[in-house]
Nucleic acid binder design. Structure first.
Length: 480
DNA sequence: TTTTGAGTTGTTCGA
DNA sequence: GTCGAACAACTCAAA
């Protein structure tokens, strides 16, 4: 093959199967596979847990490309143009991303390739079921509420593209560069302090792992997803958030695999609940695309006057981050996050409500902590979800929805299994007090070897008073 | 244009 | 212990 090669630029699509951009690149000629760690343009900079996941995902991808993946670090614009020039590249292929900084950068790259080098960039949809510009109300403006967006907008639109097969990718279809690239290790994605040893046992990173996770979920949990997903001790959520974020599996593959399993078990209710969660992911991207300011600005501007605390040095924030609030379900969640890089969905809502309402801290502070510590940290989902729990999102939670961590614990972790997993110092406490150790009589605490304030903290805030404070704060932001 | 029904995930209080 | 109502007012979506 003497023809000029093409570049396939891997981004949030670290897989071979159902990769439309990669398939198109292979059809066009010999492929130079490229990954660029663009820490020049990224806003915000990638979090630590994400960087760790990315390292292993790239390592896995590189192995499935016969170690022919070319790594670069720096300004993607500069690097790509140089690569195209030096290697006589005739086309550049990628799958679209939707973060504002990425869209801006990619548009500029596309224009520069065309204008300066007369090379065409070809972009594809590899990470959403429906493009954000494809779904609109009858008056052609974007939806602001999930249910009509999903039911009327998405489900009545053209069905999602069916997954593409893994392309035939032998060594002959991959083009070797004349100049050498960097190595994966030189990207320095792994942490300097070995905290990642703690996370590693919980995950199987890469395309094969993502598919194993998908099928384990479909086989074991889909049939009781509707109720199972709410109980953090059960591990019945899909835990596909990180694989989807990095594109180790496509939402299309998840969607159609779930439909298939759902049909086989003949259960619409659980299937629909799961599919609507995929719909929520779509909705977050949709909101971000049409409202790029949601990453930093309250969608409902009346919340700009809400008296949230904004100090990132507050001792209460520190206690929340470290899982020392004195409320077991909150602390268990924050420790799960720290130890595994993940937190169960139900518990994310509880800890979010606690920070924003009971502790009256700004959602930015929670968002920033999640951004750094979650392996599935995703700009669209993280922003939209924090705004949702804070009540300032487009699709706002009602003002009175303030989670009570004791009731939530008793309802969704009745046996305290989740608490005992992440707060071993409470493990000998009977179920009756596992969600409210401060109410336990002294002899019960003694026989469980717990001294409150010593082994486990006293509550840092009183529930009833802090709930009322949040309601009052909301009332105070209203127009007179 | 106006009207109407609805809005992911809850808690508390009083009967 | 259980159950239903109340909890602001507003915006959105569609008829």
């Amino acid at each position: 093959m003497s023809q000029a090669p093409v570049i396939f630029w891997f981004r949030q699509d670290l897989r071979l199967a159902d990769n439309p951009g990669l398939c198109a690149a292979i059809d066009a000629g010999q492929v130079i596979p490229v990954y660029i760690l663009d820490d020049v343009n990224s806003k915000p900079a990638m979090g630590s847990a994400s960087r760790w996941w990315l390292h292993h995902s790239l390592s896995s991808l590189n192995a499935s490309l016969s170690n022919k993946l070319n790594f670069y670090k720096g300004d993607a614009h500069h690097i790509l143009l140089k690569l195209v020039q030096q290697n006589n590249v005739k086309g550049v292929y990628w799958n679209r991303c939707y973060e504002p900084w990425r869209m801006q950068r990619d548009t500029q790259i596309k224009e520069a390739l065309k204008k300066e080098l007369s090379v065409e960039a070809h972009s594809f949809n590899g990470s959403l079921l429906w493009e954000p510009w494809q779904i609109a109300k009858k008056d052609e403006t974007p939806y602001k509420v999930f249910t009509p967006y999903y039911r009327k907008g998405c489900l009545n639109a053209v069905p999602p593209r069916e997954p593409l097969a893994k392309p035939p990718l032998d060594e002959a279809s991959l083009h070797c560069l004349l100049s050498s690239s960097e190595t994966l290790n030189s990207l320095a994605l792994e942490p300097k302090i070995k905290w990642d040893d703690m996370l590693a046992p919980h995950w199987e990173i890469g395309e094969a792992g993502a598919n194993n996770r998908l099928h384990a979920f479909l086989n074991q949990s889909l049939q009781h997803y509707k109720s199972g997903r709410d109980q953090p001790a059960l591990l019945d959520t899909s835990r596909l958030s990180a694989p989807l974020h990095f594109g180790e599996v496509s939402p299309n593959t998840v969607w159609y695999s779930a439909l298939q399993t759902g049909a086989a078990i003949g259960d619409e209710k659980n299937l629909d609940t799961f599919l609507s969660e995929i719909g929520w992911r779509e909705f977050s991207y949709y909101l971000l695309y049409h409202n790029p300011e949601i990453t930093w600005k309250n969608l409902q501007s009346k919340f700009d006057a809400f008296p949230w605390k904004k100090e990132s040095t507050s001792p209460e924030l520190k206690a929340w981050q470290q899982g020392r609030t004195g409320y077991p379900i909150v602390d268990a969640g924050m420790r799960e996050l720290w130890q595994t890089g993940y937190m169960h969905n139900r518990v994310r809502m509880i800890v979010g409500s606690f920070l924003v309402k009971n502790l009256l801290h700004h959602w930015h502070l929670g968002e920033a902590w999640f951004w750094d510590t979650l392996v599935d940290a995703d700009l669209a989902s993280n922003s939209a979800s924090w705004q949702w729990i804070a009540g300032c999102g487009a699709d706002a939670a009602p003002y009175f929805r303030i989670f009570n961590p004791v009731l939530q614990g008793e309802k969704f972790d009745a046996q305290g299994e989740y608490i005992r997993t992440y707060i071993p110092e409470l493990s000998a406490l009977p179920n009756k007090y596992i969600h409210k150790p401060w109410e336990a009589p002294v002899d019960v605490l003694n026989s469980a070897n717990i001294e409150l304030g010593q082994h486990y903290p006293e509550p840092i805030v009183e529930l009833k008073a802090s709930r009322q404070r949040a309601l009052d704060a909301l009332a105070s932001t209203k127009e007179p």
